[in-house]
Amino acid sequence: MTTFKLIINGKTLKGEITIEAVDAAEAEKIFKQYANDNGIDGEWTYDDATKTDTVTE
């Protein structure tokens, strides 16, 4: 398992969460579901060097 981080730069929700996932694709799926569940819809970027997804509304 690898640690992945999501940075949220939303209009109403800001912060970050960290998860353990098998790979980047699994982490992205989990993060996008989390964002959807919390009403966050924005531009996504991924930095492989830091294993960090960022969503900005």
Rank of each mutant, 00 (worst) to 15 (best):
Ile30Arg: 02
Val55Gln: 05
Lys29Pro: 00
Thr52Gln: 06
Val22Tyr: 12
Asp47Ser: 06
Met1Leu: 14
Asp37Lys: 07
Glu26Ala: 12
Ile40Phe: 10
Ala25Met: 10
Glu16Gly: 05
Asp37Glu: 12
Lys29Trp: 10
Thr3His: 05
Glu20His: 10
Val55Ile: 12
Gly15Met: 15
Lys5Tyr: 11
Glu28Ile: 14
Lys14Ala: 05
Gln33Ala: 10
Gly10Met: 13
Trp44Glu: 02
Thr12Asn: 10
Asn38Glu: 06
Leu13Trp: 15
Gly15Glu: 11
Ile40Asp: 01
Ile30Val: 09
Lys5Trp: 07
Glu16Ser: 10
Phe4Val: 05
Ile7Gln: 02
Ala49Glu: 13
Ala35Gly: 02
Ala25Phe: 11
Asp53Arg: 15
Glu43Trp: 13
Tyr34Ile: 09
Phe31Met: 07
Val22Pro: 07
Trp44Ala: 01
Thr3Asp: 02
Thr2Val: 12
Ala49Arg: 09
Thr54Gln: 07
Tyr34Asn: 01
Asp53Asn: 15
Ile30Asn: 01
Asn36Gln: 14
Ile7Ser: 03
Gly15Tyr: 15
Lys32Thr: 03
Gln33Tyr: 04
Ala35Glu: 02
Ile40Cys: 11
Ile8Cys: 13
Ala49Phe: 11
Thr54Ile: 12
Tyr34Gly: 01
Glu26Cys: 12
Thr56Ala: 07
Trp44Asn: 03
Thr50Trp: 05
Asn38His: 14
Gln33Arg: 10
Ile8Leu: 08
Thr54Val: 08
Gly10Tyr: 10
Val55Phe: 06
Thr3Lys: 10
Ala49Pro: 07
Lys32Glu: 01
Glu43Ser: 09
Ile30Tyr: 13
Ile8Lys: 00
Ala21Lys: 02
Glu57Ala: 07
Thr45Ala: 09
Glu57Lys: 02
Met1Phe: 11
Thr18Ser: 09
Ala35Leu: 13
Asp37Ser: 08
Lys29Phe: 06
Lys11Ser: 12
Thr52Lys: 03
Glu16Met: 11
Gly42Ser: 03
Ile19Trp: 03
Asp23Cys: 13
Glu20Cys: 15
Thr3Phe: 10
Lys5His: 10
Ala27Ile: 03
Thr18Glu: 06
Asp41Arg: 13
Thr50Phe: 06
Glu26Asn: 05
Asn9Ile: 13
Lys14Tyr: 13
Ala21Glu: 02
Lys5Ala: 02
Tyr34Cys: 08
Thr3Val: 12
Thr45Ile: 07
Val55Asn: 08
Ala24Arg: 15
Lys14Thr: 09
Thr12Cys: 15
Ile30Ser: 04
Lys14Arg: 10
Ala21Asp: 01
Ala35Trp: 07
Thr2Arg: 10
Thr12Arg: 04
Ala25Ile: 09
Lys11Gly: 09
Lys51Ile: 05
Ala49Gln: 10
Phe4Pro: 01
Lys11Met: 13
Glu16Ala: 06
Ala35Thr: 08
Asn9Ser: 07
Asn36Val: 14
Ala27Met: 04
Lys51Tyr: 08
Lys29Asp: 03
Ile7Met: 03
Glu26Gln: 11
Thr12Asp: 10
Asn38Arg: 11
Ile19Asn: 00
Ile8Glu: 00
Gly10His: 06
Ala21Ser: 02
Ile8Trp: 14
Gly42Lys: 04
Glu26Met: 11
Asp23Arg: 01
Trp44Tyr: 03
Ala49Asn: 09
Asn9Lys: 08
Asp23Lys: 02
Tyr46Ser: 03
Ala27Trp: 03
Asn38Ile: 14
Glu28Leu: 15
Lys51His: 12
Lys11Ala: 12
Thr45Tyr: 11
Asp41Asn: 13
Asn9Cys: 15
Ile17Gln: 00
Tyr34Arg: 00
Ile7Gly: 00
Thr45His: 12
Leu6Phe: 15
Glu20Lys: 11
Glu43Leu: 10
Thr18Trp: 14
Ile40His: 02
Ile30Glu: 01
Gly15His: 13
Asp41His: 14
Met1Thr: 12
Thr56Ile: 07
Gly42Ile: 07
Asp41Glu: 12
Gly15Leu: 15
Lys5Asp: 02
Ala21Phe: 07
Thr12Trp: 14
Thr2Cys: 15
Gln33Phe: 03
Thr50Lys: 07
Ala27Thr: 00
Asp47Gln: 07
Ala25Asp: 09
Glu57Trp: 08
Asp41Gln: 11
Phe4Asn: 02
Glu28Asp: 11
Asp48Asn: 09
Thr18Gly: 01
Val22Lys: 12
Thr18Ala: 03
Asp47Trp: 07
Asn38Asp: 02
Glu20Asp: 06
Ala35Cys: 15
Gly39Ile: 04
Tyr46Met: 08
Asn36Cys: 14
Gly39Val: 03
Asp53Met: 15
Asn36Trp: 15
Thr52Trp: 06
Asp41Ala: 12
Asp48Leu: 12
Tyr34Trp: 15
Gly39Pro: 03
Asp47Arg: 04
Glu57Met: 10
Ala35Asp: 04
Asp37Tyr: 09
Ile17Phe: 11
Gln33Val: 07
Glu43Asp: 11
Ile30Phe: 14
Thr54Pro: 04
Asp41Pro: 02
Thr12Ala: 07
Ile40Val: 06
